[in-house]
């Protein structure tokens, strides 16, 4: 059936009428959707940011392998080969004690005089080992430390593990809370639609006798759900947008070394996704009620 302008006008009129009639319940549904999508958005931002910080740290992270003194050149080469064989190792580079000392001098800057009294270079030769993934660091470090010729192995284990743990917990807690809230939103929307169907039962029975198609009868109810979903997610996105930007600005002013996600496109996708999810919740909630309570 071709949809006339008249039919469209009818749909919008009906939808608006019943949203207003059930205004308190409608507000409750919008609020629930807003809160659930807000929490979803916050946890997604939290996870992406912790991931970004972890990634940033990981790139800086490396295993430092200090060698025993007095190894022969062939022993050093042998050890480099064996480290290269450890699974997950991305790159191994040799740092001679001379270079280490030079680096130290450079690092000390104007206070390099401290080193002036030294007759002998106290620093050991070392390898810098980069891993493909940060989870592999602990295992690889243990393996390397058992290789012959290795004096000591150091890496920033604690920091990485803590970050990964945070990311994991945020993810799990987020999924549980969001799941519960989305269920609540679905339930509220389907209750609203059920009330709407009930309030209009006389009209619906007359419409059926008059020969209205099933879709004609259903559409205002579906639109009602979609509108609730849209309003709820829109409010969530607006709140999220402004509060996240002010947060990013605060952080970049006061703690500039923390790298936050500020990629416009990524955020745009996130906000678009949230609105999309709101619409899906709206449609799903109303479709459920329309199927169950609207025997057409």
């Amino acid at each position: 059936m071709a949809m006339g302008v008249n039919t469209l006008a009818y749909y919008f009129k009906e939808t608006a009428r019943y949203l207003v009639r059930n205004s308190w319940l409608s507000l409750a549904a919008i609020g629930t959707i807003t809160v659930s999508l807000l929490i979803l958005g916050v946890s997604i931002l939290l996870v992406t940011n912790t991931n970004k910080i972890a990634l940033d740290l990981e790139q800086k992270l490396e295993i430092r392998v200090f060698l025993k003194q007095n190894l022969s050149l062939s022993q050093v080469e042998q050890l480099e080969k064996r480290i290269n064989f450890v699974s997950g190792v991305a790159r191994v580079s040799f740092v001679s004690k001379e270079k280490a000392l030079a680096d130290l001098r450079k690092g000390l800057g104007e206070r390099k005089d401290i080193l002036a009294g030294m007759k002998k270079n106290p620093l050991p030769d070392a390898f810098q080992v980069k891993m493909e993934r940060s989870e592999q660091i602990a295992g690889a470090a243990a393996q390397i430390s058992s290789l012959p010729g290795v004096e000591q192995v150091l890496y920033g284990q604690d920091t990485v593990e803590k970050l990964l743990l945070v990311t994991r917990w945020v993810r799990i807690a987020g999924i549980i809370i969001i799941g519960a809230l989305i269920l609540a939103a679905l339930f509220l929307i389907s209750s609203i639609i059920r009330l709407s169907v009930f309030a209009r039962r006389q009209e619906i029975s007359i419409m059926k006798v008059l020969g209205a198609t099933n879709w004609f009868i259903r559409t205002p109810f579906l639109l009602e759900g979609v509108t609730l979903g849209f309003l709820g997610s829109f409010v969530a996105v607006v709140i999220l947008y402004f509060s996240y930007w002010s947060f990013v600005q605060q952080i970049s002013t006061f703690v500039p070394f923390i790298p936050l996600v500020a990629d416009q496109r990524l955020l745009f996708n996130l906000f678009g996704g949230l609105v999309g999810l709101g619409l899906v919740i709206g449609i799903a909630g109303s479709f459920f009620s329309v199927r169950k309570y609207l025997k057409v």
């Binding site: 059936m1 071709a2 949809m3 006339g4 302008v5 008249n6 039919t7 009818y10 007359i206 419409m207 008059l210 020969g211 209205a212 004609f216």
Partner: peptide
Amino acid sequence: FALEVIGGSG
């Protein structure tokens, strides 16, 4: 209403 619900034009 009888015409509206069957998509009758204005």
